[in-house]
Amino acid sequence: MTTNTATEILTRYADDVAYIAEQAPATTLSDFTNQLSTAHVHLRLARFAGADDINTAATLLDTANSTTGPEHAALLDRALKHLAGLPEMATEYRQMAGD
């Protein structure tokens, strides 16, 4: 199993989440988790089927933020699986907004 770090997750997803949440890109896992929660609301209101995955990822990352070691790594990996559809959702969200 590949272990992902919080930095890698931020690098991969912060811009998309920030766009959907209408905020500047997060630089910490805690800020990213908060933005995911906001993005979840926006995606849910826009009736995106994958919105609940974003909420699940936020919950997992929030828990990961207070853990260390193997448990932390496992939570990051689980959250990453729930974020897999985010780039596609962000692209569609941008298209809906006309950007």
Rank of each mutant, 00 (worst) to 15 (best):
T33A: 11
L61I: 03
L43F: 07
M96I: 10
S66Y: 13
T63L: 10
I54K: 02
E22K: 10
A14R: 02
V41W: 06
A24W: 11
E22S: 14
A18K: 01
Y93I: 12
E71L: 10
H42K: 09
T7A: 15
T33N: 08
T5V: 06
A6G: 11
A26Q: 02
L83M: 09
L29A: 08
L61H: 01
H40D: 13
L36R: 00
Y19T: 06
I20C: 09
A46P: 04
I9A: 02
V41G: 06
E22L: 13
A58H: 01
G98P: 02
D31R: 05
T27N: 12
D16C: 10
F48V: 06
V17I: 06
T33M: 04
A26T: 00
L43Y: 08
A21T: 00
T91D: 09
A97V: 08
T56R: 04
G85M: 04
A90H: 04
A97M: 13
S66A: 14
T68F: 12
A51Y: 02
Y19H: 07
I9E: 00
Q95D: 13
G50M: 07
S37H: 08
T3R: 04
E88L: 12
E71Q: 11
V17E: 00
F48E: 07
N55P: 03
I9S: 00
H72G: 04
T5N: 05
D53A: 14
